[in-house]
């Protein structure tokens, strides 16, 4: 009896001790692994930075001291010639409109194409279910090619102007939005689609009447977000290629000193446009998400 009474606690204690020890060991091991991972990460960051600094024309610390010299030069020149800025704003306004137009029309075309390809790539909704992988790979490929590549190739063929940038951004937008559209559409309620199938609706009717009304708020929200991204992309493509306010900025920058009042005007316009578009779009997106 005494034996029996004695053994369970000691076995339990032993078990507890073993458990505690193994728990502590496991925690230690986990900490060690995390520590090693962290160390590798820090080493990668440091050596990466060293390599990047070595291959850079200017070094980090001297550059840091100069960081404000260019902006202050630009701002002081812009301030000295502040009387000219309203004139420049008026002069560059058409280019700004062009930049925004490139973004808007490419978002629009990209979204329309993405709606079609996205639905064709959605499980349960596709017109030809066997071709789903094909359309998915197509979207992946469209996303993978950076806009600048398409834009520069098209400039060689089509010459300067807004069209190469428009096509390039629309192409990329199709890939980016198509994936998101298809993810949303796959989560849509299938019942309206089944109802429409039972009355003999065509694929187009099923999508237009059964799926699009359900997914429209989410899709619109993604489209607005993409529009924000595309305004920036359109300005950058103008700078690298041609068309819009980015191109004017490049010309003004190439002049260097003496034209910095133009640079200030363009910076201001670009900044304000992006902030306004971001604000409007985020306000409208919140409304969309709450409304749905």
């Amino acid at each position: 009896m005494a034996d029996i009474a004695m053994t369970p606690p000691s076995a339990g204690q032993k078990e507890l001790g073993v458990r505690t020890a193994s728990y502590i060991a496991a925690t230690r091991r986990k900490q060690m692994y995390s520590g090693i991972l962290l160390l590798i990460f820090v080493l990668m960051m440091m050596s990466g930075f060293r390599i990047a600094e070595e291959r850079n024309a200017g070094d980090f610390l001297p550059g840091l001291r100069q960081f404000f010299s260019f902006p202050s030069e630009v701002v002081s020149e812009g301030w000295a010639n502040r009387a000219n800025i309203p004139g420049y704003v008026a002069q560059f306004f058409p280019s700004l409109v062009e930049t925004v137009n490139i973004a808007a029309v490419s978002t629009l075309i990209g979204a329309l194409a993405a709606a079609l390809v996205g639905l064709l790539a959605s499980r349960g909704l596709a017109r030809w279910p066997r071709l789903i992988p094909v359309f998915r790979r197509l979207l992946d490929a469209m996303r993978a090619i950076p806009e600048i590549v398409i834009a520069l190739l098209l400039i060689y063929i089509l010459g300067g102007g807004p069209v190469p940038a428009m096509i390039a951004i629309a192409f990329h937008t199709t890939g980016a939005l198509g994936k998101m559209f298809s993810e949303v559409a796959e989560n849509a309620d299938q019942k309206p689609v089944e109802g429409l199938t039972s009355v003999g609706a065509t694929w187009g009717q099923k999508m237009w009447l059964g799926v699009i009304p359900q997914v429209a708020p989410d899709w619109l929200s993604y489209v607005l977000q993409r529009f924000e991204v595309n305004v920036r992309a359109s300005a950058i493509l103008g700078f690298v290629g041609s068309g819009g306010i980015g191109y004017d900025l490049k010309i003004a920058m190439q002049w260097g000193g003496g034209k910095y009042d133009q640079v200030v005007a363009i910076f201001l316009m670009l900044f304000l446009t992006i902030v306004v578009i971001d604000q409007l779009s985020s306000r409208y997106r919140q409304k969309l998400v709450k409304g749905s």
Partner: peptide
Amino acid sequence: FDFVRGVDSLIWTIILARAFGPGPMT
């Protein structure tokens, strides 16, 4: 945060390229 996002990457890139010269660190 809003300011940093609003001053587009294009503008930041131009300012940084002036200070640090061309290269991967910039």
